[in-house]
Amino acid sequence: MRSDDHMESARFEALIAAWGADPARWPATEAEAARRHLAASPEAAARLAEEARLDALLDGVAVPAAPAALVGRLLAEAPAAPAPRGILAPLLMFWRPASGLALAAALGLAVGLSGLDRPEALALDVDIVGFAFATEEAEADAEAEEADG
């Protein structure tokens, strides 16, 4: 990244042409130099106002919130808690399917009524992004390291 001490007009122009007029969107390493350039240059202030007008037009395009039915579908897809263990396990094993059926019935009714029941949407064909997830090889390496250590 560039020095934070000084900013040429051309760089200021390129900065606001890409990131717009709001300093919160500018790269942190250049924001202070850009502010100083702006304070010292009436031309820069005029250009900033042009970009601010485009920002305002973009801000005017709103989108609706995620529907509640989507939250319900995602909670229904969430991982289940592991089976209970211990002395109360038989009781809980009896209880959980009953509560699960009740929840499924309630969700099914809600989704059905909302007209948003689209089973095909549950198919997972997304190109899964693997970064930040442990791979089987990495897990095997970690286990081997632990064993070696």
């Binding site: 897809e77 689209r118 997972l124 899964i128 442990a134």
Partner: peptide
């Protein structure tokens, strides 16, 4: 858009155990 959001979160649910 709903389908895409659903895919992203279902992918997270399914891979949560491997999150680093």
């Amino acid at each position: 858009a709903e389908d895409v959001a659903q895919e992203a979160f279902v992918a997270l649910w399914r891979r949560a155990a491997g999150w680093r």
